[in-house]
Design a protein around this nucleic acid. Structure first.
Lengths: 342, 342
DNA sequence: AGCTTTAAAGCGAACGTTCGCCTGGCTCCC
DNA sequence: GGGAGCCAGGCGAACGTTCGCTTTAAAGCT
């Protein structure tokens, strides 16, 4: 808009060639301290900023990171989007990169979008979220030999950079915690089989149960999509079991299921916490204000974002990170819904 | 990564000059149908994609829109971020634009960040959210003569493009609804004075009350930051008033305050809905699952995003939109917390 | 003194587009 | 039949950088 000031303007004012100015700005100059100081001063007075497009063209590096996420339906919160974006944007910014958003709603030809961004050299790398088994984006980006880091693992046979949160350890800790509260018959509210995240989480339940001893009744394990209504329905159904066989606590693989479970238990006249333990997963903002407040597993989202960017920048700049498969432990946040004296 | 294919490659293969290929791709060519078809075919077989950096440099248009938002603390959900981003990204994509995220956390020198993005021609325009009275970004962008559209108004004396949601109408509708439910003494949980959004919303309360008749007791109006704990505290305090003077319903200017109010009322032994009406604002995901479910005012976020992008594209392409000050009505979602037979 | 080394800065080219102007050849019409 | 008009396409230049090589001049060495 306001007429742009370029290298040539700075050079003219400083009495040097514009290439010299470029070298000074990129700190790779052989110049006398005097000319260097002069150039910096002219840069400051003219308020010069390098034209990113020209730099991008010349260096074929856009300093842009592509980021896609899966939008949630509007009646559902995305508990981590805000924090994850803030974290990644901040880490990227510190290294001179920006985030370019693109939607993943277009399931039809996901790969075309990626191809396009790669071949038009719009972006230098990708952050891929919500990976599942055999996620097509992973082999695609590998085939294109394009830098990317995933939030979450995929097919275990594939070798690529990712940062993941150990859902197994999280659910295991929640289960263990309920056992320590004296529960013996503990049920599991899980997602349908086949999702990578869901499998990891449910394995945490089996691990803790078999380690600590309580027998598992297959009837205690119910599956459904991860929403509130499913939580209500499945829990109501579980509570139909004969008194001596029905669970006294439920581990849910996400907070929505857990909230449904709490409501169903309350409707059945149970005092959640005291008589009936419930735990969730994600530590969705707001669940600390429920009555009773909901125990949940909190993912270290901030750290995930930081590490993803760190890895990605290594990859984009051609370095090989020492450890490109990172698995972070989540943290159990104990609240009223799972403790007996609460 | 994979060796890029350029206009010249296409031209060589098609036996024309590369400029002609460019013209065909930009649909401004005078070419025979045969050569045109041939060029398109070669483009397809070589899988050519224009290099965005080169185009950006030449046209000095980056097809990038800068978007900044104010991150919420991690224990607080941002109820609209996901939907707003999805909406804007989708609308932008349809017009060939992408969104560039940048953080607004750096309060110290907000304007430097904007200046930088403008002068380096990183972006072609901005979406500015969370505007307040005398927001410094508005005059800055006006001075730079740079296209932008705000989500929300600012100083009423300034003339710029915005899309806003009529908070006054929303709170007015909520208040009106409580009056229709038979409430006469209705209180207001508001933010501290001085915020633009807060003022608009509280005015809706005054409007509906004076229009419909109930006298307003200044004691019914309490202010504090918009969080859950404040809602609890203020409501508890209100309920200390003598029985004959205390409100039988509360209008809250956001959902957090409303949730606090519900809990405080329940702790005071009141049956929310039946005996004590509560309404919120934002229709935060999840509040439909509270007991009782919370009546709230829903903003047409999707539409806001679409219209902002529409306006912005007009501005960026030099057109003058017919109506650049858009005020959208929100919608009251009535649930159990505000109805007497609920 | 004559030669090599080094420091400081200049110079040309290239990245891949788009844009405006130019040209060659054909058609058309009086 | 010859000039005007038009159509298809070519051509040069420019956008603002970065990069590697060259040049100049001064300094160092034997």
């Amino acid at each position: 808009m306001t007429s742009r000031v370029t290298l040539k303007d700075v050079a003219a004012r400083a009495g040097v060639s514009y290439q010299t100015v470029s070298k000074v700005l990129n700190r790779q100059a052989n110049v006398t301290p005097e000319t260097e100081a002069l150039i910096w001063q002219v840069v400051a007075t003219l308020d010069y900023r390098p034209n990113i497009a020209a730099r991008t063209l010349r260096k074929s590096a856009s300093y842009l990171i592509g980021y896609s996420w899966t939008p949630q339906p509007p009646d559902r919160a995305n508990p981590i989007l805000d924090q994850f974006l803030t974290s990644t944007v901040e880490a990227a910014e510190a290294a001179g990169y920006h985030l370019l958003l693109f939607p993943s709603h277009n399931v039809v030809d996901q790969t075309q979008i990626y191809r396009n961004l790669v071949h038009s050299s719009r972006v230098d790398g990708f952050i891929v979220t919500g990976t599942n088994y055999d996620d097509p984006r992973v082999p695609l980006l590998q085939e294109l030999n394009f830098p990317f880091v995933a939030f979450g693992r995929a097919n275990p046979d594939w070798h690529f950079a990712y940062v993941d949160v150990d859902g197994r350890a999280g659910i295991s800790a929640a289960t263990q915690h309920l056992i320590e509260q004296g529960h013996q018959r503990i049920g599991l509210l899980a997602w349908p089989e086949g999702s990578r995240v869901g499998t990891a989480r449910q394995n945490g339940y089996f691990e803790a149960m078999t380690r600590a001893g309580p027998a598992i009744d297959p009837n205690w394990i119910v599956r459904g999509s991860g929403d509130f209504e499913t939580g209500v329905r499945c829990t109501t159904q579980l509570l139909q079991l004969p008194q001596a066989q029905r669970p006294t606590a439920l581990v849910a693989v996400d907070d929505h299921l857990a909230m449904g479970a709490m409501i169903a238990a309350q409707q059945a006249g149970l005092h959640v916490g005291q008589e009936f333990g419930v735990t969730g997963f994600d530590d969705t903002p707001g669940i600390q204000h429920l009555t009773p407040s909901l125990t949940s597993v909190r993912q270290p989202i901030w750290q995930v974002g930081q590490m993803i960017v760190e890895l990605l920048i290594d990859l984009m700049q051609g370095r090989t990170p020492a450890n490109a498969q990172i698995n972070l432990p989540p943290r159990l946040i104990v609240r009223q819904s799972s403790v007996r004296n609460g």
